[in-house]
């Protein structure tokens, strides 16, 4: 049960449902949540390969730490952009942000 394929399919499921949410939701915060799910799918994939295949188990952990740092930076930037956009157009719906088009 604790095999490589289980982890790969679980991370594939997380990635696909994150992609579905990113394409289908219209609230910017919900899209950010979907992006977080996709990033977690990537780090789960790295850890699975790290546990079952890779020669050195420390390298995958370092990559996952890097992904976590990127995700934290991305969440901070995205949330501040969402707040600035909300103050500007009083909505966080992505379809009402078309006035940003130049």
């Amino acid at each position: 049960m604790n095999s490589l394929l289980v982890y790969l399919f679980l991370s594939l499921f997380l990635f696909c449902i994150g992609m579905f949410g990113l394409l289908q939701r219209r609230s910017l915060i919900a899209m950010l949540i979907s992006v977080e799910l996709m990033l977690n799918a990537a780090s789960l994939n790295f850890m699975a390969f790290n546990r079952f295949l890779a020669p050195d188990p420390a390298v995958g952990q370092i990559v996952v730490l890097f992904i976590m740092g990127i995700a934290a930076a991305e969440a901070a930037i995205a949330l501040s952009i969402i707040l600035a956009l909300f103050r500007k157009i009083h909505s966080i719906n992505i379809e009402q942000a078309r006035e940003l088009k130049g």
Binding site: I29, L32, I33, A71, A72, A75, L79, I82, L83, I92
Partner: peptide, 18 residues
């Protein structure tokens, strides 16, 4: 620590602010 403790709380703050 990072995801549940920081990012989810930040998202909740953004929800409350917007």
């Amino acid at each position: 620590l990072i995801y549940v403790g920081a990012i989810c709380i930040a998202i909740v703050f953004a929800i409350m602010l917007s």
